[in-house]
Design a protein around this nucleic acid. Structure first.
Length: 556
RNA sequence: GUGCCCGUAGCUCAGCUGGAUAGAGCGUUGGUUUGCGGUACCAAAGGUCGUAGGUUCAAAUCCUGUCGGGCACACCA
């Protein structure tokens, strides 16, 4: 309702000689379709009664905008506007803004490490990142989905060490005995062994550190032939294949590519060396560190005393390589929130090299997945909750609730359960609640969609132009709610918060169910108009679910 | 100890660029129902928005203190 905003702004100018941007909000339905509190702000400045100001503006605007049926003043000085039915219909037809048209965005999320297990947090980041990327895309941006992961680093040393132990030496040919379906599982078991040995045995620890170093050397020397290298490359591929299968199962958008840490390591090292000579980094106890204290941050090691780059250095390399490849307008990074402080230090160091990259980067963080009862699902050892555990719990809950195991229902349940909450805090995931067909759940929305589709399927409904006038209350409420879709998506894009869409879709479904309960569609004299409403509703719901990458089947 | 994040109904969460009686789901209690998929609808009970101050015409929302919880703070990622 740009017209209305401008008309009100013009009124303020004409009446009070004041230039002010007017923002309309959605009041409670009983008050109207749009509202502005401009009079409350003006009254302060004019030193007059806010209701009088509101009244004056209301009188002035009345009749000036064709789409407005009624202007009223209420409360301390709110001005409420009620649209004509045909204007409401126009609003319902509007599409989300293409606010990012022509922009290039790099979205990095999921980030599982090869040689390690996919845990519950990865599942959450993956689903969230996918939804955020989709939002950006829907707003017109070209999105490059990147998946970064540690194919070098201490965890690789741990796993590789345990693999060699398991194989009884560096015998790549013995890897054939591992079943292809259980490779990811097998690797994560080796990681746990390696990690345990690292903590329990000084001898093993020294060996693991040495293995870790060999993994770096293998990349530096481009070694694909030595037995050790053969084991490494084979197992790294197993990891990526396993991740691919996992993503496929989740029905998310494909990643453009994996960015293994090893490919940005040298770049990162070079940057640190350069920064060292330029005084950005300094030597300290044999390591190269960045002092964060002058910036209110803390000191972090970028290259350790063994000469190996830490995650910090590699992250510098990653940022540089993203920039060199994409020259993005925006870089979104989604991770768990335990690294917020860490990331601030890295970005502060990066500022020295690429200030523009830092200003265009947005680090998004989310919380931890917990079970009902407050049990935390994250831990160092083998008792972590894996991504597959969550999915399995959802399948079991679905089977228990419905007697059948429907992949689409489970996907909707898990995705919606994760997405409906604002990104940031911890999530308490309740499998039973997520698959329930009652309440604020993914399956509820799927059902709400299928139900509307089934009505349409019973007729030869054609989506032709239709005059929306003299709507009854229930019809009008539904149309009004449908009209909020575009602005809801805009808000979600602006904040990069998909949960706004979830909240909206659920409210939309509730409004529809209310309408459906009290208004007959088929066989009613108002059938044609109501079919249009049902169709518009189903399309909106479907589009919203599609934005969240949640399937919206016609039948359930 | 220092820094960052969080604290809204019994439970799980919206609302937080300040605005009209603080919203929803689950659970609880009570209704509707031979009707397009009742997996619904209607209604009730349930909240000093951790707490104490401050700013403001107006504070769950902004500021400060305080209590409680989480995370991070040099060679892991």
């Amino acid at each position: 309702m740009k017209d209305l905003e401008l008309a009100v702004a013009q009124a303020c100018k004409d009446l009070f000689q004041t230039e002010r941007a007017v923002e309309l909000t959605r009041p409670d339905e009983q008050f109207g379709d749009y509202m502005t509190n401009i009079a409350l702000h003006l009254s302060k400045q004019l030193n007059t009664n806010p209701r009088e100001v509101a009244q004056t503006i209301a009188e002035h605007v009345k009749g000036q905008v064709a789409d407005i049926e009624e202007v009223s003043v209420a409360g301390p000085g709110f001005i409420n506007f009620r649209l004509t039915d045909s204007a409401l219909f126009k609003v319902a037809q509007s599409h989300p803004a293409q606010s990012l048209a022509g922009k290039t965005v790099v979205a990095e999320y999921s980030d599982p490490n090869p040689f390690k297990v996919l845990h519950a947090g990865h599942l959450y980041t993956t689903i969230t990142g996918d939804a955020v990327a989709k939002l950006l895309e829907n707003a017109g941006a070209t999105v490059h989905r990147l998946n970064y992961g540690g194919d070098v680093g201490l965890h690789v040393g741990k796993t590789m060490w345990a693999i060699v132990q398991f194989l009884g030496g560096e015998h790549p040919e013995k890897l054939e005995s591992v079943q292809s379906a259980s490779r990811l599982e097998w690797l994560s078991e080796r990681y746990v062994e390696g990690n345990t040995a690292y903590e329990d045995s000084e001898t093993a620890k020294a060996e693991i550190v040495a293995v870790n170093k060999r993994a770096y050397e293998l990349h530096a020397g481009n070694d694909h032939d030595s037995p050790f290298a053969q084991i490494y490359w084979t197992c790294r591929q197993w990891s990526y294949d396993g991740f691919d299968a996992f993503y496929e199962q989740l029905h998310i958008n494909k990643f453009e590519k994996y960015v293994p840490e090893s490919t940005v390591t040298q770049l990162g090292i070079d940057m640190v060396q350069k920064g060292l000579s330029e005084g950005v980094f300094e030597q300290s106890d044999g390591a190269i560190v960045f002092k964060g204290e002058p910036h209110g941050l803390h000191t972090r090691v970028f290259i350790n005393s063994g000469g190996l780059p830490t995650y910090e250095a590699k992250d510098l390399g990653l940022a540089a390589s993203k920039w060199q490849e994409y020259h993005f307008d925006l870089s979104v990074i989604i991770t768990a929130n335990d690294i917020v402080e860490y990331m601030k230090v890295v970005l502060k160091a990066l500022e020295h090299f690429y200030p523009k990259v830092v200003s265009r980067s947005k680090h998004f963080t989310h919380g931890v997945i917990k079970l009902p009862g407050g049990v935390k699902m994250s831990s160092r050892k083998g008792n972590i909750l894996r991504a597959t555990d969550i999915l399995q719990a959802a399948h079991e809950a679905n089977r228990a609730a419905s007697g059948q195991d429907n992949q689409q229902t489970v996907l909707a349940a898990v995705k919606y359960a994760f997405l409906k909450q604002r990104i940031g805090g911890d999530i308490i995931y309740d499998p039973a609640e997520s698959v329930a067909l009652e309440g604020n759940s993914g399956p509820y929305l799927q059902y709400a969609h299928a139900r509307a589709r089934s009505i349409l399927a019973k007729t030869d409904f054609q989506d032709q132009s239709q005059e929306f006038d003299h709507l009854e209350a229930g019809e009008r409420s539904l149309l009004r709610k449908i009209g909020e879709y575009a602005e809801t998506v805009d808000k979600a894009v602006e904040e990069l918060m998909p949960h706004h869409i979830c909240t909206y879709l659920y409210e939309l479904a509730q409004v529809f169910n209310r309408f459906y309960e009290h208004n007959r569609v088929l066989g009613d004299p108002r059938q044609e108009l109501r079919l249009h409403l049902v169709s518009a509703y189903a399309n909106t719901l479907e589009h919203g679910l599609e934005l969240l990458n949640i399937p919206a089947p016609e039948h359930m």
